[in-house]
């Protein structure tokens, strides 16, 4: 859906958006007690601006769909997640129409797969993220060759392997909170490279071109950001 030549333009636009959008960094407000943070970060905090990402009711709503085909629960999930999935798609370079379609498709999959949702292996947001991500991968491939989609299948292969871990539900819950706390502690620049690796279809070389920095710098920034994230996550357990 994206011509190679257009990618750079889209990237530059996204970069511009990311820059303009810096205050939204404040939205990484964590629902849990926070580690000490840099003063300038504190200044940008806007507590209570949005719902906590992994408020328990998302999982409850998904279970209600699985158990009772609860359409009210679905409506609430839709209202919160569909516009965010759409935004996620658009950030990945998907045009608005297709992004809307993929967001609708994601929510239909949430409805259909609710019974497969295992709060033990993923929180609600992470689960919906993987559904959206797989649909995006498959949509991208389909436009390239009109082939059948497979990205979700591998997910299933892995799920069946790991789903049985003891105390998985507890671990998952703690993980989501830890992840949020760790993200909170990344610098704005580090967070930006992490976001890039999530929101862009592009190779590092394209990111380098878009940011106007050498490829090596992109790679080392990404490595540093990831190391820091892993340290933060490991350190919290």
């Amino acid at each position: 859906m994206i011509q190679p030549g257009r990618r750079i333009v889209i990237l530059v636009m996204q970069q511009a958006l990311l820059c303009l959008d810096l205050p939204r960094r404040t939205s990484f407000a964590s629902p849990m007690p926070k580690a000490p943070r840099a003063p300038q970060r504190l200044a940008r905090m806007q507590p209570g601006k949005r719902e906590p990402a992994e408020a328990p009711h998302w999982e409850v709503l998904i279970r209600a769909i699985a158990a009772d085909q609860d359409r009210d629960a679905f409506a609430r999930l839709f209202a919160y997640f569909a516009p965010r999935v759409k935004a996620f798609m658009q950030r990945s370079g998907v045009p608005a129409d297709a992004a809307e379609e993929l967001a609708q498709e994601t929510m239909i999959n949430v409805w259909r797969k609710a019974a497969l949702f295992d709060a033990g292996t993923a929180g609600a947001a992470a689960w919906i993220f993987t559904i959206a991500r797989n649909l995006r991968i498959d949509a991208y491939r389909r436009t390239q060759r009109g082939i059948d989609a497979t990205a979700a299948e591998f997910e299933f292969e892995l799920e069946t392997d790991d789903a049985m871990q003891p105390d998985a539900a507890m671990i998952a819950k703690q993980d989501q909170t830890r992840v949020r706390a760790a993200l909170d502690q990344l610098s704005a620049e580090q967070l930006r490279v992490v976001e890039l690796s999530f929101f862009e279809q592009q190779a590092h070389a394209d990111i380098a071109a878009a940011l106007g920095i050498p490829l090596g710098t992109v790679k080392s920034r990404l490595r540093l950001a990831m190391n820091r994230l892993r340290d933060l996550l490991d350190g919290q357990s």
């Binding site: 990402a53 516009p83 608005a96 992840v179």
Partner: peptide
Amino acid sequence: ERVGGSLLTDVPPAPMSSNAFAAVE
């Protein structure tokens, strides 16, 4: 993927079309 979930909930929402929910339902 949990990081992805967090980024997903933090992204400024893009409004869906007015008939989106009806179409999905």
